[in-house]
Amino acid sequence: MRLALAQLEVREADRNGNRDRALDAIERAAADGADLVALPELWNVGYFAFEAYERGAESLVGPTLTRLREAAREHGVALLAGSVVEDLAASAADGEAVPAEEGLANTAVLFDADGERLAVYRKHHLFGYESAETRLLTPGERLPVVDLLGFRVAVTTCYDLRFPEQFRALADEGADLVLVPSAWPYPRVEHWRTLPRARAIENLAYVATVNGSGSFEDADLVGRSTVYDPWGTTVASAGDEPALVTAAVDPERVASVRGEFPALDDRREY
């Protein structure tokens, strides 16, 4: 399976431009033979543009996700539509299961190549340190793991990387490819390199981190979208400029590594 991470240039207050860059990246990735394309965290409004969250919020069937669903079908690729700010009340009105009847969530949606929605993941761990994220957003409750292109695929988001128990819970559900849309900023470059590598090693699974590129008033994104294999080896990566990071990933590689080094079988309960 060919995976493409779309490290987009994300601009504050440029929703139309951000959308156009996302659609262009999907088209280019598909033309390059991608089977699955992934977008970053809150790529349409910009993670650090907190004042834009409310006016940029949509339901799960709003115009942004509807257009990306169409793009997946049009280009014949599975698509992790990064994450968007979800209006929970609007989604509830559309009959969707939501963690609260009102408020906002940082929500990632996975579509298959027919444009069918496979999974909805709402970010579980909201950034502390007096961040506006904790004040503005409602955390998710579900950890979906779905079958796609021979893999058991799961999604986590950015700050979730610091919580290994979440990744172990996904491994217990059979996840062997975890996609991590992010908006990871400088100066924590070493954390960005270390944490996903550790999550891959611990769980003997692929971990693919897709970050944004660009500058905001209070932060610059580190980029460096990367695919790690089940040994924690870097398969493909980028710098901090906009890029398409592509890699061949294989579920048989996971089975081989887990067979050669069955560390998960040696776990003890505490």
Rank of each mutant, 00 (worst) to 15 (best):
L148T: 04
G150Q: 06
A243Q: 04
F167S: 00
G174I: 10
N211K: 00
A171Q: 11
R188M: 10
F216H: 07
R199Q: 15
Y206C: 06
A169D: 13
V249H: 00
V178N: 04
L177H: 09
R188D: 13
T194E: 15
R199E: 15
P196W: 12
V155A: 00
R224F: 02
Y206I: 05
R253F: 14
A154G: 06
L195N: 03
P242F: 14
R199I: 03
D220W: 09
A175F: 12
P181Q: 04
V227M: 04
A243R: 01
A208D: 11
F151T: 00
G232F: 10
R162A: 04
V207D: 05
A169I: 04
P187R: 06
P164N: 11
R197N: 01
L221R: 02
R224N: 03
T156S: 02
I201A: 11
T157D: 08
E217D: 13
T234I: 15
A219Q: 03
A248W: 15
L244T: 00
E241H: 13
D220F: 09
A248G: 07
S225M: 07
P187S: 08
T209Q: 11
P230H: 03
A205V: 05
N211T: 02
V210N: 05
V254S: 04
P185F: 09
L161S: 12
V210K: 00
V178Y: 11
Y228L: 09
V222E: 14
V222H: 09
A183P: 02
R253Q: 12
L244D: 06
W231P: 00
F216T: 01
W184L: 10
R253G: 02
T157H: 07
F163S: 00
R199D: 08
A243D: 14
H191C: 08
G232L: 05
E241T: 15
E165F: 13
V245E: 08
L177M: 11
G150N: 08
T234R: 03
